[in-house]
Design a protein around this nucleic acid. Structure first.
Length: 112
DNA sequence: AGATTGACTGCAT
DNA sequence: CATGCAGCCAATC
């Protein structure tokens, strides 16, 4: 069912993250909710890097667990993803796909 | 079968 | 800049 979503999530390169909305579009035009729903329904032993899926703010959405979101952040940091002071990820650097306006600042960050 | 919820998103106030 | 509301599609009750 969610195979499409899981597949898209699995396509996220290591050290990158994507938002529900993007995944939903990549998944075939579903809604972001279905992505989140799929994540909630995601089995524990899944090979799907659900941790790379974040909200539009590039941050982690607190779910029912209350602790898993911290684990998610930990996993992302372990992959090389850098979190901002607001607990958000720089979509200009780690966002995937890089369809962001890519301000010249982001380019500099890449080189930096 | 109808109503409600859901790890969301974007625009409007 | 923070809160509110409507849209989205699918699953669960």
């Amino acid at each position: 069912m969610y195979a499409r979503i899981y597949q898209c999530v699995a396509q996220i390169p290591k050290g990158r993250v994507s938002s529900y909305g993007r995944i939903s579009k990549l998944a075939g035009g579903c809604s972001a909710r279905q992505v989140g729903y799929a994540m909630s329904a995601l089995p524990e032993g899944s090979e799907v890097p659900w941790q790379r899926v974040v909200n539009s703010k590039g941050g982690i959405s607190p779910r029912s667990d209350g602790e898993s979101h911290q684990l998610q952040r930990w996993l992302l940091e372990d992959e090389g993803v850098e979190f901002g002071p607001d607990g958000n990820i720089d979509m200009g650097r780690f966002g995937w796909p890089e369809e962001t306006p890519a301000p010249r600042a982001a380019k500099g960050l890449f080189d930096a």
